[in-house]
Design a binder for these strands. Structure first.
Lengths: 201, 201
DNA sequence: GTCTATATACTGATAGAC
DNA sequence: GTCTATCAGTATATAGAC
């Protein structure tokens, strides 16, 4: 009983601590990026020593992975489970953009960390490549489903439209972070999407 | 004659040295960003000591400014001087995207450094905000000019279209860096733009 | 104009006490 | 589970010799 046995409460406490650390790390990586953000900054935010943080996550890289999968969970919750199909999926993306406009910290996390992730020598480059491939695949399927239902303007290139839509979301985030009052992310998204569709968004 | 007098050759040599340093810094900041890129890396690339680099640029921040204004010069040369108007300006942007697809280093510099620049505490945040405002202004004017000439589809929102076009360029760069073979930046740009126009791109 | 040497600070990670 | 102490590495910037 000395090693394996623990009460539910103790597990819950550790999990809670881990979540606190992930939250703090998200804040730090959001504002200065993963490369420049330090474990010390994260530790200070959560009231722990730097070694204390490394007890819960064996390395800085593991911590970033935890932050990213937590964020993916947030997104999935927002989009709905199971993922909607066709035009409903596209509506979900617009709704996500609306939600993003209320959380600059999350937007900045995405912008800075995915920019860093394009580097050939970034430890999580493969993660980013895989995640973009997945998102683009889902979006293309949504366009294709809409086409099957006659809800897509004939002649639309589904692969190109999905790249364009995701690129648009990403690019608008940069502009919005630099000038929040000058950019309506969801509005611009709708103005791009609506002319492609034969139904109301 | 001890302080101010220098021959043309000496000036030219110093300017040449500065340019070498700017080139090296562009490479370094491209691959790991401004925050993580070190003066030592830059110095090594150009065969100088770190102190030697700081003789030419008083601080790391001054060096980044030099890199960015050099890149702006590159872009301006590509777009033409004076800047083209109307649809020709839009054609210039597509041509720029075509050129970008031949220089991943420059693309990565833009992606990572402008992502970093959105941070509230980045020393050059104002520079980035100003530069985006300028680019968006030029692009909006191009759409408006096209509208005057009847080359723009009636009912097009010029401000929204300019934000969308620039966001699209930025966002496609991220996807292209992660999967160069899967993304045709200039093609996607044309597929967005052409339906807005009444003339051939 | 370039160097070496140095000041000062911070980095991620490990070892071991409690 | 958290701490202190520590390591080896790196950062920007400055001082002063040449």
């Amino acid at each position: 009983m000395t090693t394996g046995a623990r009460t539910r409460g103790e597990y819950a406490k550790s999990a809670e601590r881990r979540q606190q650390i992930v939250d703090a790390a998200a804040e730090v990586f959001s504002s200065v990026g993963y490369r420049k953000g330090s474990l010390r900054d994260v530790a200070d935010k959560v009231g722990l020593s730097q070694a204390g943080v490394l007890h819960h996550f064996p390395s800085k890289e593991h911590l970033l992975e935890a932050v990213l999968s937590w964020r993916d969970g947030q997104t999935a919750r927002l989009m709905g489970d199971p993922l909607p199909e066709g035009v409903d999926f596209l509506r979900g993306l617009v709704r996500a953009a609306e939600y993003n406009a209320t959380t600059p910290e999350l937007v900045e996390l995405h912008v800075i960390v995915s920019a860093e992730g394009t580097s050939a020598d970034h430890p999580l480059r493969e993660y980013f490549a895989g995640r973009y491939a997945s998102v683009l695949g889902h979006t293309r399927q949504a366009f294709e489903r809409a086409a099957e239902l006659g809800q897509l303007r004939p002649g639309t290139d589904c692969a190109s439209a999905s790249r364009t839509l995701i690129a648009l979301m990403d690019g608008l985030q940069v502009q919005w972070l630099l000038a929040p009052d000058g950019v309506d992310m969801a509005g611009d998204l709708r103005r791009y999407l609506q002319p492609l569709l034969t139904v109301e968004l």
